[in-house]
Structures are given as C-alpha cells and as structure tokens.
C-alpha cells in the first residue's frame, strides 16, 4: 500500500485481535520519524511511515532496556529492509518483522496497519 504523502484526512488503523483500532491521523506521521500510540489495554505501539508512504507498527518497548522508546528512534533502510534503531543502545529492529538485526534471537511484536 503506497500513499501520496500529501493526503491529509486519512486515519491510521491498527489491527488488534479482530478489530481495527484508530491510532492517529496519517498527517501526524512524519516520514522517517515515529510516534507512539496508547492501546486500549495500556500497551504501547510505535508507528512509522517511510518515504515511500509505507506504514509500520511495532511494540514501543525496547526489549534491551525496558523503556518504551522505540518510536523515538531513527529509521532507515538496510539491504532494502526498513528498520528503526533504538534511541537508547542503538540496536536496529526490522520494522516489517520485528526481528532485531543485531541479535536475531530477539524480536518485538509487529502489528498489521493501514490507512483509510
């Protein structure tokens, strides 16, 4: 799914179990920079948008430090795959699969996400 970046009134939806949960306006997502959203159960999700308009959602908690900060990391592309680098100790996580690129045994949860 690719979107023209100038679209403004779209909402970002997140798949939770069987429902789609409205997280924020698409306009709140700056390409290359994440935001965090609060989930109904008190959990936190980090949302990202890359420069092609693709959306990603992963657990906001950094498994290496415990702090809920992944949304504040820098994003990038590694061998064609989108990633975010934790702002604390800089481990990189594949945005599509949640797998840590620096230690493949560690993974964060990913969510299905779309804009409508």
């Amino acid at each position: 799914m690719t979107l023209a970046p100038e679209t403004t009134d779209l909402k970002v939806l997140l798949r939770l179990a069987d429902d789609w949960f409205t997280a924020c306006d698409l306009g709140a997502l700056l390409p290359g920079r994440g935001v965090a959203a609060l989930l109904p159960d008190g959990g936190q999700v980090a949302l990202f948008r890359d420069r092609g308009g693709e959306l990603y959602a992963i657990d906001n908690r950094d498994p290496f430090t415990g702090a809920a900060v992944l949304s504040r990391g820098l994003t990038g592309t590694h061998r064609g795959r989108p990633f975010v680098a934790s702002p604390l100790l800089k481990q990189r996580f594949d945005l599509a699969t949640g797998v840590c690129l620096d230690d493949e045994s560690v993974r964060v949860r990913t969510y299905e996400v779309k804009a409508v």
Partner: peptide, 14 residues
C-alpha cells in the same frame, strides 16, 4: 507528547 492519541497521558513506564 508521549502518545499521539492521548496527548495528556504520561508514559506509564516512566
């Protein structure tokens, strides 16, 4: 803000 969808809510992990 800590949360884009709840600007007044502080991050409970902190």
């Amino acid at each position: 803000v800590s949360f884009v969808n709840a600007p007044d809510t502080p991050d409970p992990v902190v």
